[in-house]
Lab assay of single mutants.
Amino acid sequence: ITGDVSAANKDAIRKQMDAAASKGDVETYRKLKAKLKGIR
């Protein structure tokens, strides 16, 4: 179950990262990237 949750989280975070990148929001992008590392 835990694996599914983190996989879903990663997917959601990647989508947020894409949105931040397209807006040029480097700050948010970095925060999300750090979150991704924390999940692993």
Rank of each mutant, 00 (worst) to 15 (best):
I1M: 11
I1L: 10
I1V: 11
I1G: 11
I1E: 10
I1A: 10
T2W: 13
G3N: 11
D4M: 11
V5F: 10
V5S: 12
S6A: 07
S6G: 09
S6Q: 13
S6T: 11
A7W: 13
A7R: 10
A7D: 07
A8N: 10
A8R: 07
A8H: 13
A8D: 13
A8P: 08
A8Y: 10
A8W: 10
N9P: 06
N9E: 15
N9W: 15
N9I: 15
N9V: 15
K10I: 15
K10C: 15
K10A: 15
K10G: 08
D11K: 08
D11L: 08
D11T: 05
D11H: 07
A12K: 06
I13R: 00
I13T: 03
R14S: 06
R14D: 03
R14F: 07
K15F: 05
K15H: 05
Q16V: 02
Q16Y: 03
Q16R: 04
M17N: 02
M17I: 03
M17D: 01
M17W: 01
D18G: 06
D18N: 08
D18H: 13
A19K: 08
A19E: 14
A19Q: 08
A19W: 08
A20H: 01
A20V: 02
A20M: 01
A20E: 02
A21N: 05
A21L: 15
A21Y: 14
S22Y: 05
S22V: 09
S22A: 14
S22T: 06
S22G: 05
K23M: 11
K23A: 13
G24F: 04
G24P: 00
G24E: 03
G24A: 03
D25F: 00
D25L: 03
D25H: 01
V26E: 06
E27I: 06
E27W: 03
T28Y: 04
T28H: 04
Y29A: 02
Y29N: 02
Y29D: 01
Y29R: 01
R30S: 04
R30E: 14
R30P: 01
R30A: 07
R30D: 07
R30Y: 07
K31F: 04
L32V: 00
L32M: 04
K33C: 14
K33V: 09
K33W: 09
K33Q: 12
K33P: 00
A34R: 10
K35H: 06
K35A: 12
K35I: 15
K35G: 02
K35F: 14
K35S: 08
L36P: 00
K37N: 13
K37A: 14
K37G: 06
G38E: 14
G38S: 11
G38Q: 13
I39N: 06
I39W: 07
R40P: 09
R40Y: 15
R40D: 13
